[in-house]
Simulated scan of single mutants.
Amino acid sequence: MNSAAWTSPPVLADDLGITRQGVRAWLKRHGYPKDDDGFYRIDAATEARMRAHFAARKTPPPLGPCSVDECDRPRRSRGAELCALHHQRMSRHGTLERSLPGQNQRAKTHCPKGHPYTPENTYRFADGRRRCRRCRLDRAAAAKRTRATPA
Rank of each mutant, 00 (worst) to 15 (best):
W6N: 04
P10K: 06
D15N: 14
G17R: 09
R20T: 14
R24L: 04
L27Q: 07
R29C: 00
R29E: 13
Y32N: 03
P33E: 14
D37L: 08
D37M: 03
F39P: 02
F39S: 12
Y40R: 07
E47R: 15
A48D: 11
H53A: 10
K58T: 11
T59N: 05
P60I: 02
P60N: 02
P61S: 12
L63G: 04
L63T: 03
D72A: 13
R73C: 07
S77E: 12
R78I: 07
L82I: 06
A84C: 07
L85C: 04
H87W: 10
Q88V: 03
Q88I: 04
S91T: 15
H93K: 01
G94P: 12
L100T: 11
Q103K: 13
N104Y: 00
R106Q: 07
K108L: 15
T109C: 05
T109G: 10
T109W: 04
P112E: 02
P112Q: 01
K113E: 09
K113N: 12
G114P: 04
H115V: 08
Y117C: 01
Y117R: 01
P119H: 03
E120R: 12
T122I: 08
F125Q: 08
F125Y: 10
D127N: 15
R129W: 01
R129D: 01
R131P: 00
R131H: 01
C132P: 01
R134P: 01
C135Y: 00
A142N: 07
A143I: 04
R145M: 08
R147T: 13
A148C: 03
T149G: 04
A151E: 06
